[in-house]
């Protein structure tokens, strides 16, 4: 199941947000060793503001299985503030462009061959949300090792610059082009057979 958290409903989801911040600490700081602000339990940075939108894939017990954050590019965001050098022709910004950060999936850490249900759900939900909000691009910085998976799943990606080598990892900035065709392809490739977003309450999803 997909849950969207934004400025209008975040007070209803404080438990889920807390769970997400804990998971981010475990994954990005403890597992990946990223140098991020934290209090030893939660990973929360300067972009976790009221402007941020979170898309979560949760199981029936409301355990988060996959998660991501969207930030408006008209305001300070990670790519513009810290990774602008990865964008050879400037950092894409605008009201129809949001930045994806902190994408993680607990599916990845399974050691069996079960389908990555929650990852697939989140991949499709991200495009569904973007289409519903009239977004044209989602920008992102990622390790190049995930790009083949992104392409395979059906995303239409435009690199924003050449990769660079950083601490023995190749990272790159790219834009995910938001199109109905790629949304259909992502759904087909992830066995998604219908809309995933919750039915919105008036004004709920449009305030970011």
């Amino acid at each position: 199941m997909i849950v969207i958290i934004n400025r209008l409903n975040r007070d209803d989801y404080t438990d889920l947000l807390d769970q997400m911040y804990r998971q981010r600490y475990d994954i990005f700081i403890k597992r990946f060793g990223w140098d991020l602000p934290n209090d030893g339990v939660l990973e929360i940075d300067e972009y976790d503001t009221d402007d941020a939108v979170y898309i979560l894939s949760v199981d029936d017990e409301m355990n988060i299985k996959a998660s991501m954050r969207l930030c408006p590019t008209m305001k300070p965001h990670l790519m513009a503030d810290k990774f602008a050098h990865l964008c050879f022709k400037g950092v894409p910004t605008g009201p129809s462009i949001m930045e994806v950060t902190r994408f993680y999936s607990l599916d990845h850490y399974k050691r069996d061959d079960l389908p990555q249900h929650f990852t697939g759900e989140l991949r499709a939900a991200m495009l569904e949300y973007a289409l519903s909000e009239g977004l044209t691009q989602l920008t992102c910085i990622a390790n190049l090792t995930i790009i083949p998976n992104m392409l395979k799943t059906g995303y239409d990606l435009t690199p924003l610059g050449l990769p660079i080598l950083k601490k023995n990892e190749c990272i790159m900035a790219y834009a995910i082009n938001v199109t109905h065709a790629s949304y259909i392809e992502v759904c087909e490739n992830n066995d998604i057979d219908g809309p995933l977003l919750p039915v919105s309450k008036p004004g709920e999803r449009t305030a970011a």
């Binding site: 190049l144 050449l162 990769p163 660079i164 190749c170 790159m172």
Partner: peptide, 20 residues
């Protein structure tokens, strides 16, 4: 040139994806 190698890296990913 390391930047040439990075360009080859990027192109190779798309080469393989397209080939598949």
């Amino acid at each position: 040139d390391p930047d040439v190698q990075h360009a080859l890296h990027l192109m190779s990913i798309y080469l393989y994806d397209t080939a598949v």
